[in-house]
Design a protein around this nucleic acid. Structure first.
Lengths: 123, 123
DNA sequence: TACTTTACTCTACAAATGTAGAATAATATT
DNA sequence: AATATTATTCTACATTTGTAGAGTAAAGTA
């Protein structure tokens, strides 16, 4: 299921934190932060939708994602990307390298991976 | 502004078509297609939001996006990707090559792009 | 010209979303 | 124990979204 904007935003925070208490999640938001109850409501809804679960620590909960970010990515963002870049991986790649300002080291690494991939294809 | 799910979907169609009449856009949808008036409503809202505009042809309109897909992408999807891949090019590369079964030709092209990027970085 | 089709707008409404106060329950502090 | 703090739920409500019928105007056609 595709999440709504604010829900996706919350998930992004949770994905990058791996796990966290409601308070921690709230901390991620830029000022002016939403009310704690707002986050609570969203977490409840996300739990109903099966996107998050939690572990009890006393009376409070440590939330964690039930859906891996890469799965969500594959299901929802990937198609968007392919569409955006006309299904051309190279177009996406050039966009990505341009946008993410990779270091020379990382670019070299990336190049190696691709060379490897080409070798794999050939045999 | 981040669009809602269905609106984004419509924009995806429009972006891939470059431009199109309402009818054409409707055609893109898989069965069961939504009612034409549904699309009309969304186009109206998207026009209000400044995402699309149209050229009149007689009494009908040829819609086109006002926002380039790459701009929308940069603003909304890019951060998500960076988050997803921890900004790591190698993670990105392995995911991407796995997901999109690239042809050797495309891989070669990709390699060239990266080499170019490395050159750019150096000077 | 009367009738049909086409294209769009207006109105409507249910569902989902975004937001948060008030209430409650559990825990900690004095 | 009495009070303050914290964590969560319940309730509420405005807004946005998704969806489409009914109405209207323009263009095509019999």
């Amino acid at each position: 299921m595709k999440l709504a904007k604010a829900e996706e935003q919350l998930m992004e925070y949770l994905w990058s934190m791996e796990k966290g208490f409601m308070k921690d999640i709230l901390e991620c938001y830029p000022d002016p932060k939403p009310a704690a109850t707002t986050i609570a409501t969203m977490l409840k809804r996300l739990a109903e939708k099966g996107f998050v679960a939690y572990k009890l620590f006393g009376n409070s909960r440590e939330y964690y994602p039930l859906i891996a970010k890469t799965d969500y990515f594959s299901a929802h963002v990937n198609g968007l990307i392919k569409n955006f870049f006309n299904n051309s991986a190279s177009q996406f790649a050039s966009f990505f390298t341009r946008e993410t300002d990779l270091s020379t080291t990382e670019l070299e690494e990336l190049k190696k991976i691709i060379e490897q991939e080409i070798k794999n294809k050939k045999k």
